[in-house]
Design a binder for these strands. Structure first.
Lengths: 355, 355
DNA sequence: AAAACTCAGTCAATCGTTTGCGTCAATCCT
DNA sequence: AGGATTGACGCAAACGATTGACTGAGTTTT
């Protein structure tokens, strides 16, 4: 008896084997929640279940989607994939997707709106039930071309007035960073904000600058070179070029702070002493490099975004959420803390292993 | 004239507007490569094109897939998402996918074979045309349960005898690391390999150990705590616990090396001097932290994996590929190089900004 | 004993495309 | 002039599942 030769078994085959109609098979194999009626006798049910089992039946999601116009699929837009931050958010999304048997179609859009539209079209062709966007730009409609298709959209990480979003409390993060630096006696502050279209950096800078001004400091200098290591390097070079190296630096991503401090260090500015540095995301490297950082529950942020989208798809009204942030102080801002990190070849005396 | 009210326009609507059959519409709107015959008069073609345009027609990929049993969709399995390495590979895959109008369904499997099978089932329900797996385990069949469904599989990053794979030349990477450390006069070597089921770590360790032995050194100690920062910390603690801190350390991931050196540093072993450290992947943090590292073209690796899969789907025979690796030496292994990295609060004299 | 009500199903349409096989006129060939 | 070819299309059956409407036998109600 050939169980499955090449093709996947279908309901029709089960129906034939059991001697009922596909209707009955369909009704038994996935009882609708709304009408959980008994559509068949216990024996028939048993028979269908058994044949399905032995044949290794699995429903064809595509056929279901076509019929029901619900694809159990969502689209996820990431500005870049390959970055810890976005990938972590996606991990949270993936988590919830798995729990709900949903598939995620992913596309990285490189923060290029044109690319985003193209890929959105592509996704809609696959009838995604909803979209999660991590690549919103301030001052520019998010997927404006998709108005006609009313597919629910939830933004994550970056906010935009047009849509519900799940973001960190970025303003609070900025305030927190500024207060921390000020409490350490730092007076000449600077902030690397990523790009001007990213609400994350903009909001953090807003809180940062506001707090600095309220404390009577000069207005912090804002650098918008990006959020990568390389961007941090460029920002640092700019600081050096304009001969205004800050004594307190806040960067919107651990990586750009590391990039910046590496260049500053090259020019003689010792991190933790000459310049206190604070990053964001509290990524693993921050821990390994003794970088003070403001942690954001990225994984949870991803989770919430899909949970909200699912609520929305379930018919509920949803509202934007703001997640709390917290600061972890390390030696990069407070040199009194033990340094564990990458102090390659310093003159620090070697200690014996602690017992 | 209502252009599209709520539903997406269909071929039927176009057919009705133009006054032809859906057959003709279908044939015009996507001429089959095999039979590029003229199915309609120039005027009809023009009319169909125009109506399609004005209605904003887009074909329903699901319906197409159902009919043709080709979904233009692939499944991608990642062990973890949120890691630079895997995310970069995925970025390469995503690139090719975009170029070919293919959608990628992603699932992270946390290196748990059961989870992988479950999600594979899910993907097959969506009729993925093929699968790319970055989470193969040595000594364990990869997706063995999927034999009946003969869906093409290409492995990436980690190899496995059962399938074609695109990997880095991991053995060479290990040899390269060992030779480098040996050339620096290091004699007590150790290697952090990730987990024993990862061909990456195992192969790198093989090359590393072999080279060390050939050079007449003692056999390097192997640590298999994992590849994360935390794993590196644990490995370092193990080294200290067994009182055999190496003077040359090779770790299979920049992050675990950073984790390890941070702990070692805490115990007085200065990176670059007491212990020369080399990582893998040459990630941005390696640059920022002056970590010597063996770079692998991860993005390209991802690209090649999907390109191979597509070749396979196109009917070609495909073979495994091995990509070259290259070492970038920085201060973590060679202290004579300029240190730029995160030397928080050292006593290095401050230099004036270079002009 | 007729009406009403379950139970255990079936029928057939539908989702949006694709595609092998016609068809019907006009034109071409010899 | 009669057969063959070509151009321009249409029919209808898939693909695999869902679902509102219906049926026919048995049981209960009044």
């Amino acid at each position: 008896m050939p169980i499955r030769i090449n093709q996947r078994p279908t309901q029709r085959q089960i129906a034939a084997r059991v001697g009922v109609s596909v209707t009955t098979v369909s009704r038994i194999l996935n009882p609708s929640e709304t009408h959980p009626e008994r559509w068949a006798s216990p024996e028939t049910i048993e028979a269908i279940r058994e044949v399905a089992e032995v044949l290794g039946y699995r429903r064809n999601s595509l056929a279901v989607s076509l019929r029901t116009s619900r694809s159990q699929t969502i689209g996820v837009f990431l500005p870049v994939i390959g970055d810890y931050t976005l990938a972590s958010i996606f991990a949270g999304i993936d988590d919830v997707a798995r729990e709900h048997g949903i598939m995620a179609l992913t596309a990285s859009t490189l923060d290029t709106p044109g690319l985003r539209s193209d890929r959105a079209m592509n996704m809609l062709d696959h009838l995604v039930d909803g979209i999660i966007g991590a690549d919103a730009h301030l001052g520019e409609r998010y997927l404006g071309g998709l108005d006609a298709q009313r597919v629910p959209i939830v933004l994550v990480h970056r906010r935009h007035d047009d849509h519900v979003s799940v973001t960190a409390d970025d303003v609070a993060a900025g305030q927190m960073a500024a207060r921390h630096l000020i409490s350490l006696g730092r007076t000449r502050l600077a902030v690397i904000i990523g790009r001007r279209y990213m609400s994350t950096g903009v909001d953090r800078a807003a809180g940062f600058v506001q707090t600095a001004l309220e404390a009577g400091l000069e207005e912090p200098v804002v650098y918008d070179h990006g959020f990568t290591v390389q961007a941090g390097r460029e920002a640092a070079l700019a600081m050096i070029g304009r001969e205004s190296v800050p004594d307190g630096l806040f960067g919107m991503h651990d990586l750009c702070v590391l990039g910046a401090t590496s260049v500053l260090r090259q020019h003689g500015y010792v991190t933790g002493e000459d310049v206190a540095a604070v990053g964001v995301y509290d990524s693993p490297v921050a821990g390994a490099c003794d970088l003070s950082s403001i942690g954001i529950g990225l994984h949870n942020m991803g989770r919430r975004s899909l949970e909200l989208l699912l609520d929305r798809l379930g018919g509920s009204d949803i509202e934007s959420e703001t997640l709390p942030v917290h600061l972890t102080v390390r030696a990069s801002s407070d040199p009194s803390l033990q340094r564990t990190g990458h102090t390659w070849g310093t003159m620090t005396p070697k200690a014996p292993p602690t017992p």
